[in-house]
Amino acid sequence: MTPARRSGPAVIIWVIAALALALLVLPLLGILLSAPWPHLPALLVAPETLQALGLSLLTGVISTFCCLVLGIPLAVVLARSVGWAVVPRRLLRAAVTVPLVLPPVVGGLALLLLLGRNGILGKYLAQLGITLPFTTGAVVIAQTFVAMPFLVFAVEGALRGADRRVELAAASLGATPFQVFRTITVPLVAPGIAAGAVLCFARALGEFGATITFAGSYPGVTRTLPIASYLASQTDLNQSIALALVLLVVSVAVLLGLRDRWLPGVRG
């Protein structure tokens, strides 16, 4: 036994970590290796590809915007819930976490039962002439549902790390609570908001299950890239891989823009 200790993890940790990384990365490498490179340019500019990509980018941006507007206030409430009684605090946290752990198809079904034209709320909307299922709006709602937790947790993490005394100082100088929120809190946690928004966008872009259940699948209206890729995989694998490649490139580009801030676990 030598007393000399290496500061890094044990060899076994390295080996297992390498296996884990291989599991995460090799399938993606598979897409790159089996991509029909010679046909790729033609497949990528095919009208169906561009249509699905355009729809995915549009709905992804709108969903991210919805997540920001709705999610930042929710993150503030969640961050301040530390002082609450245990039960409501845990219920709130569980409610925000549910979309993360729920199978998206279940989320889509739940949305259909709530907002479908015979849904609990949907039937009242239908009386006003608004039907959501099978519209681009339904895609946005499904994406917002699944992506919101990413934003809330990223912002909440940033809020907890922020120095509250600045807010208290502003309040003591006569700022209203909303002024404090707008001029102090939001700029203070801006990096967290940015990180959350990027994650949100990436998640919205990849949304499949809730979308196909709640919004259906129609070219140009609700058929986003993941749905187009899935449908193509049933008949034309090359087309499917091309679509998957587009998704992969966009997602990786988005995440690379994040550097170290890309998980709720990494807090500045």
């Binding site: 479908g116 259906g216 609700t222």
Partner: peptide, 21 residues
Amino acid sequence: TPVTLETDVKAVVTKVELDEV
């Protein structure tokens, strides 16, 4: 002009059963 093109026949039945189409 359908509002949705489903991936299997049962999904079409479900949409009709739920009265969504």
